[in-house]
Design a protein around this nucleic acid. Structure first.
Lengths: 254, 254
DNA sequence: GATTATTTGTTCGTATGTATT
DNA sequence: CAATACATACGAACAAATAAT
């Protein structure tokens, strides 16, 4: 089992992005201040302007920088601590949610994805999958916060043996046990009404409104590694997000 | 190149992105299938490869495409306008959503927030507010994607005169007209069932499940500047978020 | 299994446009 | 009007991943 916690950048713009991120976090460039121009960065790191722009694009996408023609590129926020629009903090929330709840496995089975399921989980039809049907509970509650189906590929099926014991998200179990790295998570939220059978296991009334939250986890090869489809009754769960923005208009000098 | 929508792109890659989006939505390229190679697109539209890649990058960012070296570029999802409107997980998406829909104002009134509303909107009870009840439509659709109540403080009430004309988010109208700066957005999603009256204006069936999405916009003084409470029927709207995970270098402050 | 062709990914160079000072 | 700085767009070349021979 090989854990590739590969932090060393593989491309030049990734390296540059990392370097700049560090300089922002370390306070060399402060929030509200301008960073050097593209031309200056180009000289300083001896790369082409295109490479500089790719790196800057990365930081912009992550909400750390904003650029305006004629002005320059301004630090919008400094990394890790705050939450940004890109969902960086949302993943942390996801992990926190998992760690704050306990899980009870009700059913297990092995199945082959038909057209419909394959479509919903972003796998090819015919893919063999292991499925677990679980309930999630808050610490002292008797009624579950959510019911959910969890799917992993057949070759990773054994992780489902541990999911109710390890107090960590299923996706990190797969990462640790099988050396894959999750790189992207896609989440879809739709509204639903509880069917009688669903209401029963959730100890809720039939046709209570609920959030249907599906998540799919992808590795570096864009392969679906894990998926979950959950029902969260509206009286027990709400989905909250907070975006911090800083629209840049002007700034006082230091 | 024929552009159907009333939003005219300002740059070539934006035009190309729009064109490709349309071809995916119209079913010319289906989910799971490959689109033409970059070289072919370059020829077909007579632009440089750089321009093609910028357009493809846009679609990838919006989750419609995924590309892999050696394989090609594959349609991952067929975007918005057919059935689902993509939801808002980032500020960029919020602005895109607003620009892609048109707004119809049904009612206006002035009111004073009682305990309950004040609580829900994060203002003090007694605050005077201007309210607009609006519908949001996708281009060419007759049934609205959403109904929503929009609230602004009394001193900014006049912006509600422009919200159906300016093709921009209400919060940026407030920013421009009154010189405030929105710094934080809080969003809450809960599941709901449509009441008969709500179903009527939305042209939907009663007790259709729907997402109830509330957003509150705060300025630098942490003052609620604007708020909205919307109902999004589940057959017309889903809330999609994508987060990319990068190496968690996990160094803690002492 | 090795080689080759195909396709996206990265990197360089250059020029022009647009917004701001 | 001129200088500055980012935005867009053209061109070219090689690398890396994959599929086909």
């Amino acid at each position: 089992m090989k854990i590739v916690n590969d932090v060393r950048p593989t491309t030049m713009y990734a390296a540059l992005a990392r370097q700049l991120t560090g300089e922002i976090e370390s306070g060399r460039y402060k929030v509200g201040q301008k960073i050097p121009t593209e031309a200056e960065l180009q000289q300083r790191f001896d790369v082409s302007r295109h490479t500089v722009r790719e790196a800057l694009r990365d930081l912009k996408d992550r909400g750390l920088l904003t650029a305006r023609a004629g002005i320059g590129t301004v630090v919008r926020a400094k990394g890790s601590s705050t939450r940004f629009m890109q969902g960086i903090g949302t993943l942390k929330e996801l992990i926190q949610f998992v760690e704050a709840t306990r899980m009870q496995v009700l059913k297990r089975r092995v199945l082959v994805a038909d057209e419909d399921l394959a479509e919903r989980l972003s796998v090819k039809a015919g893919q063999e999958l292991h499925e677990a049907f679980v309930l999630r509970f808050l610490p002292k509650e008797v009624a579950p916060v959510a019911s959910m189906y969890i799917y992993v590929r057949a070759e990773h099926g054994n992780v489902l043996d541990y999911i109710d014991k390890a107090g960590q998200p299923v996706f990190s179990l797969v990462e640790k046990h099988h050396g894959v790295r999750i790189v992207e998570v896609r989440q879809q939220i739709v509204a639903a009404n509880l069917e009688p059978s669903e209401a029963r296991v959730l100890k809720a009334r039939t046709s209570t409104p609920a959030l249907n939250i599906s998540r799919q986890y992808f590795d570096t090869q864009d392969r679906m590694v894990m998926a979950s489809v959950g029902l969260y009754p509206s009286d027990r769960f709400s989905h909250n997000t907070k975006f911090r923005i800083q629209s840049v208009d002007e700034k006082e000098a230091p």
